[in-house]
Write a protein that binds this DNA or RNA. Sequence first.
DNA 1: ACCTGAACACCGTTCAAGT
DNA 2: ACCTGAACACCGTTCAAGT
Lengths: 219, 219
Amino acid sequence: MKSCPVASLVKRTYHHGDLRNALVSEALKLLEEQGAAEFTLRDLASRVGVSHAAPYSHFEDKTALLAAVAVEGFHKLGAYLEQAVQENSDPTEQYVRMGEAYVRFGTENPALYNLMFTGKELPEQRDKFPELNEAGSAAFGMLTGMLGRMQQSGFLREGNLDGFGFAVWALVHGLVSLIITGRVECAGDCVDGEIGTTEEAVRASLLGMLHGLKNPLTA
Amino acid sequence: MKSCPVASLVKRTYHHGDLRNALVSEALKLLEEQGAAEFTLRDLASRVGVSHAAPYSHFEDKTALLAAVAVEGFHKLGAYLEQAVQENSDPTEQYVRMGEAYVRFGTENPALYNLMFTGKELPEQRDKFPELNEAGSAAFGMLTGMLGRMQQSGFLREGNLDGFGFAVWALVHGLVSLIITGRVECAGDCVDGEIGTTEEAVRASLLGMLHGLKNPLTA
DNA sequence: ACCTGAACACCGTTCAAGT
DNA sequence: ACCTGAACACCGTTCAAGT
């Protein structure tokens, strides 16, 4: 009985079944602190206070650990989108807010976002990690759900919702990707102009997709 | 005179000043064959027939080598876009073709594309490699140039060309990124629908940005 | 100037051994 | 069942030494 006397009263659930969660939550911090390139399994293990081989008791390999982190990321993304839906009743307003929320998630968690999408081996892990597909599908479902309400309200033209969803997803995903890799200032510098702040550029892009870039007087 | 008797007649320009180019061109092949995750400097060196330390005579480190490869990638992307412009005179047609050409470049060179954009340390290298900025700016310039012609022809609404360019860039970049990470089938599976082939989804997205997703009868 | 070979630090992964 | 410590293969990078 002398082992871990206050274990259940204090935190130290480590070594008692919580190592897996401790690794994932610490990985989330470490990822944003150091960046994905410097993220190392050995560093993670030492920061959580275990040997560098300990993670292998809970994950098959490094990519499996990262897949679990990505799942967490999709839940987090879902929370961002959910909030945008809740806070706005007007469908068109929901469209802009959801887009902005999506971009905000990406810019506030760049390393996590890159892991979730530009994950090199993640596509392979997706079959092994059904949660990874489910979490991603849930986020996409919130997007098409919002578009469906816009369509029913008569604000959206007729057409396949999945097609619309894919286009919007590609747009916001592209916005995040360009922003977090620092291509925004580049786009401004490239020619001569100023595209204003990043937020303005995002909003303008979202409205561009909604209203179209073409001259409305044109057929 | 007994050193390299037929050097100038046969290929073997290696060891005679061509190592740098040999490394870059071999890296382009190796990148698509093995994928970025498995791309190793030692493997590259051995495939080109030199010791694993030889590349350091021409590049400061691995990322500097990759930056040179990325520059090559931007030139290649420029060639794709240039062709789309040349082959079409109608501005609106150029818009769709350029977008499709951009996506085709990405899907045909996924590892190279990822290196060019989701490059982790590339942003830092961009200051050290002015070519990297120039090559990227040239591609963006072709995009805004095309949009400018559309605007002058009256097909595009009034507005900041850089802003339009950024929105279109984000869209095609997002399309490429989602496609090469295998998210397209996912989007189709997620809900219930079929968004058709990838090519159709790309075209629909491009036209969506041009004409807008909103109901044209709506204010 | 350009390349080689050995060496160093570091990482992912495995495994016998501990508790 | 979960964790440790040592070990292995591999990689990026450095450097003295060769040509």
